[in-house]
């Protein structure tokens, strides 16, 4: 009986320790590691109202249709990138016009 109790107590302790370890992040589900995401250090609170990735489809939706939609959304942002670059170029090339009177 005594040894049985010891076994039970040991198992309970192990379960508790495992739970603490998991809670503290020492035990993580191993999954695809290639695209492990790291939370950016500065995130605007407004991103809480949209999916964190910014994609129009759910992060778990890997269907062909979803990826077509996601690609289109990325293309729109790339177009915006071109516009931003042009605005930056313009702001750096701004020259004062000479004044004469």
């Amino acid at each position: 009986m005594g040894s049985s109790i010891k076994w039970v107590v040991s198992i309970i302790v192990i379960i508790i320790l495992a739970g603490v370890a998991w809670k503290m992040g020492y035990l993580k589900m191993s999954g695809p590691t290639g695209m492990a995401t790291t939370t950016p250090s500065i995130i605007a609170t407004t991103t809480e109202t949209v999916p964190s990735s910014g994609l129009p489809t759910a992060d778990t939706d890997t269907s062909d249709a979803a990826m077509v939609q996601d690609s289109a959304a990325i293309d729109a942002q790339i177009q915006g990138m071109n516009s931003d670059q042009a605005s930056l170029d313009q702001s750096m090339s701004d020259k004062p016009v000479t004044q004469s009177y």
Partner: peptide
């Protein structure tokens, strides 16, 4: 904008990986 596109592509890349 670069940050935004990076995060979007990262998420899509994760889907493609799966």
């Amino acid at each position: 904008r670069v940050a935004n596109v990076t995060i979007m592509m990262q998420a899509l890349g994760a889907k493609l990986q799966l």
